[in-house]
Amino acid sequence: MNTMTEKESLRIIHEMIATSKGNLKDNSFFYLLWGWLVLIASLSHFILEQFKYDQPYLVWPLLMGTGAVVSVIAGIRIGKKAKVVTLVDRSIMYLWWSFLVVIMIVLLMASLQKISWVGSNVLIMSMYGLGTFVSGGLLKFKPLMIGGIAAWILALVALFVDPSWVMLLIAASIIIAYLVPGYMLKSKEVK
């Protein structure tokens, strides 16, 4: 048993390090879930507004609440299945928990009319740009990083357009920042 040559030792080290790193986890689920929920919410909001519906924003708490419940359940399930935890997994988890807290603070500020709804939308778009960009960097997955940058650019655009268009900008940014990279991540995992 102890007759390994130095070359064999190196081969074992390389092989084992390669198997434990770069295990792209099934993260795509969350991008797709939130991507579709935000896309449906922003488009419904836009359409309801066009039809002069009184409270078009009501779709948000409904769909986002659903998303939060599904995410918590899925998060616990995936966490239970994970046999190995890397620093990257933990960093991403803390990143999105902080994201959730900051979003809550922004929404509270908007409800108390401390900031405008356009302002809160711009902040939220910038925030998910941040989450996506950092996750992409940690996972070394460029489409997510590009998605994050796109979300920032669209957040800036939202500052200068008519407020009624902001919902369409959110829809566009969620497609670029969540749905496209989400599906790319998913197809990568299958391979």
């Binding site: 102890n2 074992i12 434990s20 046999k83 190995v84 620093l87």
Partner: peptide, 22 residues
């Protein structure tokens, strides 16, 4: 300098923690 022990340590060096089954 033992195949299995070296494998275990090499697996653990790149991760935070790993389960027995992993």
């Amino acid at each position: 300098h033992n195949q299995l022990r070296l494998s275990i340590i090499s697996l653990l060096i790149g991760v935070e923690s790993a389960e027995f089954n992993f």
